[in-house]
C-alpha cells in the first residue's frame, strides 16, 4: 500500500506534500504580515498551491483558470488598489494590539477545527457511478447545455461589475 519514495507514486506524494506546504505558507503570509503588499504576494503563493491541488484532483482546466484568474487578475487588481490607496497597516496594528489578534485567532481556529472535525468524522457515501469523465470536452458540453443559463448570467454579472467599477471609481472626480 505504501509506495517507496522513488517510485512515481511516491514522488507524486512528495509533490503533493510540497503543494500543501506552499498553500498553508501562502495563507500564513497573506494573513499575518504587516505590509499589505506582502500579503498580496502571500495570496498569490497560496493560489499557486491551490492550483496544484486542483491538478491532483484530476482537473487541469480549473487549475489553469485558477492561475489565470486569481494569480493573474485578482492579485494584480488588489496590488493596484494598494498602490492607489496607500494604507498604513503598520500604524493601525500598533494602535490596537493584543485583543484583536487573540480574538481573531480564537474565531478562525474554532471554525477551522469545527469544519475539519465535521468533515473527517462524517461517513461520506458515493452517489453512484460516474456518468462522464470530467474532461475539458465534457465541461464545455455541460456549460453550453445544462448550465447555459447560468453561463449567460455570469457574463452579465461580469459586465455589470465592469460598469459598476467604472462608475464608482469615477464619481467625485472633476
Amino acid at each position: 500500500m505504501n509506495p517507496s519514495l522513488f517510485s512515481p507514486e511516491g514522488l507524486a506524494g512528495v509533490i503533493f506534500l510540497i503543494l500543501i506546504g506552499v498553500t498553508l505558507i501562502g495563507a500564513v503570509i497573506a494573513t499575518c504580515t504587516q505590509r499589505l503588499i506582502r500579503s498580496v504576494v502571500g495570496l498569490a503563493i497560496c493560489f499557486l498551491g491551490v492550483a496544484g491541488l486542483y491538478y491532483f484532483l484530476n482537473s487541469p482546466f480549473v487549475a489553469l483558470m485558477e492561475l489565470l484568474i486569481y494569480v493573474g487578475a485578482v492579485c494584480v487588481t488588489i496590488a493596484f488598489a494598494i498602490m492607489l490607496a496607500e494604507p498604513d497597516e503598520n500604524k493601525l496594528l500598533r494602535k490596537k494590539p493584543g485583543m484583536s489578534g487573540g480574538l481573531s485567532l480564537v474565531c478562525g481556529g474554532a471554525i477551522a477545527y469545527g469544519l475539519a472535525y465535521a468533515g473527517v468524522n462524517t461517513t461520506w457515501v458515493s452517489a453512484g457511478a460516474k456518468v462522464n469523465d470530467g474532461s475539458v470536452k465534457a465541461i464545455g458540453v455541460e456549460l453550453l447545455t445544462t448550465f447555459s443559463m447560468v453561463f449567460e448570467l455570469v457574463s452579465v454579472v461580469l459586465l455589470i461589475a465592469i460598469l459598476g467599477a467604472l462608475v464608482l471609481a469615477r464619481a467625485g472626480r472633476n
Binding site: 498553508l24 490607496a85 481573531s104 471554525i111 475539519a116
Partner: peptide
C-alpha cells in the same frame, strides 16, 4: 476537506484581524 477548512479558518482569522478594507478583501 481539512485543507479547505484550514484555508477557511485563515480567511476568518484575517477578516477579524485586519484593520483595513484591502486586508479584509484578501
Amino acid at each position: 476537506l481539512v485543507i479547505g477548512a484550514i484555508l477557511f479558518g485563515f480567511g476568518i482569522f484575517g477578516l477579524v484581524r485586519r484593520p483595513s478594507l484591502i486586508g479584509m478583501l484578501i
